[in-house]
Structure formats: structure tokens, C-alpha cells
Amino acid sequence: MSSREQILAAVKKNQPDTAALPSLQGLAGDMPSTPEAYRKVLESLGGSLFEITDAAQVPALLAQHYPHLERVVFADDKREWVNEDPHRLENVDMAVVTGQWGVAENGAIWLTENDIAVRVLPFICQHLAIILPRERILATMHNAYEKIGAPQTGFGVFIAGPSKTADIEQSLVLGAHGAKSLVVFVLG
């Protein structure tokens, strides 16, 4: 008997009687889905937020707040970098991507492979900017999974704030292995 059969047989023999799945109704309570609520949580995670009315404002705001950027990559501007060896994205100073859904309760933004073009992009860049349409801020994770539905791509990720660690004596340090900072532009 293969290990697969062996494991499955043991599980079948030992598993308890089936119990019904619980309802997920009523778990979201009345948590807010406002940009203000979202901002509060994002800032507590070390991210920053700007409200904009036009995506065209992004380059100027980036130049103002990050004066030393050399290589900036826009994910929806899929030029030759998309076909590069992803390892070469190591020298990207700033990646700008558009998020699908934001979650006010925890600051997370949902991105899929389609939004980031190359999977490693939002991790390997030194800094990350995400544009998030105002009406796409939801209250909780339950609302987010309702909207996201079934997977459409091979990879998706919730990103909440910059990469961080507190492994050394619980001192919070931003910029572990991923982006050192996160700026969110709420559009609309």
C-alpha cells in the first residue's frame, strides 16, 4: 500500500462523525468601511495614505515624498521589464500597482497576478505604492472574500503595510525582506 493509501485509510478509519459547517453570517458586525477607518489601521501598520482624485497625480506625489527614486516600475505599464528575469527587479526602487480590494479592519489590499504582472514584484521592490479606488474599501475579510470569489489566477496576495519583523527582542523594524515602505493612494 502506498503512503497515500495508507494515510487516507487511517484518516478514514479514525475521523469522527461529520459535523455541519457553521454559518458565516453576523461575523462582520458593523465595522466601518470608510477611507478614514482604513487610514487609521494602515498608519498603525507603518503605511502611509494619500487621497487623490486622478491617478496622474501619483508620479508627482512620489517624487515629492521619495526624492531619491531611480528605478520606478508601473505594473499596468507592461513594458520590457515584464519579460526580464525577475531577479533583475532587485534594483526596482518603487513599484506602483493597482489594488483590487482594500480591507478597513486590517489595512490589507488584495492583489492578483494580473495586477502585479510579475509575482515577485511587490516583494522584491524597495518601496511599494498601491492605488486603491475609494469605493473598493470593504469593512472586513468576510466582505473581501465575498467580492473576490473563486480564484482567477495562479497567485494572489493580501498585503497589509510594509514588510516588517519584531524578531529581535520584539522591537518593530520596518523593512525585513520585502518592501521597506508602503504608500496607498486612495483614488476618487
Partner: peptide, 22 residues
């Protein structure tokens, strides 16, 4: 949605981990 709301809050007292990769 249920588990990601609970995990990081219980673990380190943050609302969610920075990355939840699918």
C-alpha cells in the same frame, strides 16, 4: 476570512500579517 482574522491577532496582536499569499 475567519482564520485570517484570528491568526495574527492571536499570534502577535496585529490585525493581519503583512503578507497572506495564496
Amino acid at each position: 476570512g475567519v482564520f485570517l482574522r484570528l491568526l495574527a491577532r492571536s499570534a502577535t496582536g496585529q490585525p493581519i500579517t503583512t503578507y497572506s499569499s495564496h
